[in-house]
Design a protein around this nucleic acid. Structure first.
Lengths: 194, 194
DNA sequence: CCTACCGATCGGTAGG
DNA sequence: CCTACCGATCGGTAGG
């Protein structure tokens, strides 16, 4: 039973690596078969379609991010700490499964319409919860944020460095620099009274 | 004579829009032909190959960025002003030709090996000049930058918001927010003497 | 998990 | 700029 899961997971993992390297549309099932040492048609004993592989990878990441967000919210910590925990979450996702997260980020537009709709709903919910933390931080005078939508996107883009450069820099260094960069960018300057 | 150029440019522009929307590998010459109102084979009266379209788009952007960098360096202004001008440059590129810049950023990996090599050389040179400005700012105590390589990548990633969100926000608002975000992120905190 | 095979689509050419 | 067409490759199925 674990044997079946393992085989399918092995294929899915190999697919994630190929989708990352070559992109989803130009990865062929023959590429994938060669990578896992099977004949092309044999792949279909384990998975339903090429489309399903992409769905599995993207939706899995989406759920992991949602779960991570719930965990962060449950800590009931300050906006500053929540933001730090979210940076950790994005780093952890990138370190644990770099291929899947890259595919999740760059190849989701090739999802079939149905799955894409579900995917975008999850993402929208995640974005909304993230922005709430930024708003909370602004209202409590911890963050200096003029336009929450723009700053949210800036933070998200900033964190993509985790999987675009994960190999080039040590994990802890990356975490320190990114956290510092983001926190300084939105730091509330206290007025100095003379 | 301008007629010839115009027709080719029209096709290249249409290609950029399709490559952006569907990705290079899954854009077919039949898609492109339909978009410009020709039969598939007629495209080849104006361009040499699908590959050449991608090369034109990517290399053109690369040269424009290089030219922009030279212009900025020639101002011989302070690192702070140079950084602001580079942010303007990235914004201007994204506004003037959003499709091409997106393709330049996301689809260059599909360039043929020869062109890719040339492309990466141009990019490496651009990165090097950009980092020099950051170093200059750090040495003159204007920027607080711990790891130049990481901060460079953070800034570049930050600026991708220009073409990922150009439609969602007014240009001037985007420029103000992004410039503020980056400058605060690397701002040198002056020590306060009591 | 394999052999054999399918219809569809691809980038591109010949010839006018 | 079009008609006609090519070989290659695609995702996937039938049948065992």
């Amino acid at each position: 039973m674990t044997e079946v899961l393992t085989r399918k997971q092995e294929i899915t993992q190999a697919a994630a690596e190929l989708f990352q390297k070559k992109g989803y549309p130009s990865t062929s099932m023959r590429d994938l078969a060669a990578k896992v040492g099977l004949e092309p048609s044999s792949i279909y004993s384990h998975i339903k379609s090429k489309e399903d592989l992409l769905s599995d990878i993207c939706m899995n990441c989406a759920f992991e991010f949602s779960k991570g967000m719930q965990w962060v919210l449950n800590t009931k910590s300050s906006p500053t700490v929540k933001l730090e925990l979210l940076i950790d979450l994005h780093l952890k996702m990138a370190i644990d499964n770099p291929s899947s997260v890259t595919v999740f980020n760059d190849e989701w537009r090739f999802l079939s319409p149905d799955v894409k709709e579900e995917f975008l709903e999850l993402r929208k919910s995640y974005e909304s919860l993230f922005k709430n933390i930024l708003l909370e931080g602004r209202e409590s005078k911890r963050f200096s944020i003029n336009n929450v939508d723009i700053v949210f996107e800036l933070i998200i883009q900033t964190m993509t460095i985790f999987y675009k450069s994960a190999k080039k820099h040590p994990k802890e260094e990356l975490k320190r620099q990114v956290t510092h960069f983001i926190k300084e960018a939105i730091r509330q300057k206290l007025e100095v009274r003379n």
